[in-house]
């Protein structure tokens, strides 16, 4: 799955988790929490939505890997590939 596709997946999820957030101009290399004013409850929901939609398990200690759209793409790429292949 391409990086852009993964970024779109994350933005789709944010639109559900925080519908009042402004997602049209999100920068790929800036922390999502800083750009979108997401709190810890919202952040937990991104993880939960990934699990619900793609059956991806993300351990708590790896949450920092989801800090930016770029890091999401790098971290989730292999995980999504594994799920899609299976």
């Amino acid at each position: 799955m391409g990086d852009q596709r993964i970024k779109d997946i994350i933005l789709d999820i944010i639109a559900v988790v925080a519908p009042d957030a402004e997602v049209s101009n999100v920068k790929s290399d800036v922390r999502l929490r800083d750009q979108l004013d997401l709190d810890s409850m919202d952040f937990l929901d991104i993880v939960m939505e990934l699990r619900k939609r793609y059956k991806i398990e993300i351990p708590k200690e790896e949450y920092p890997e989801l800090a930016t759209l770029d890091s999401c793409a790098a971290y989730l790429g292999p995980k999504l590939a594994a799920v899609t292949a299976a």
Binding site: A18, A21, D39, M41, D45
Partner: peptide
């Protein structure tokens, strides 16, 4: 009001996926 995001009401609407 609609613009506020970080108080209990908007937080719980987000959490419950309600508008």
């Amino acid at each position: 009001g609609p613009g506020v995001r970080d108080t209990p009401l908007p937080k719980l609407l987000r959490q419950l996926r309600l508008s």
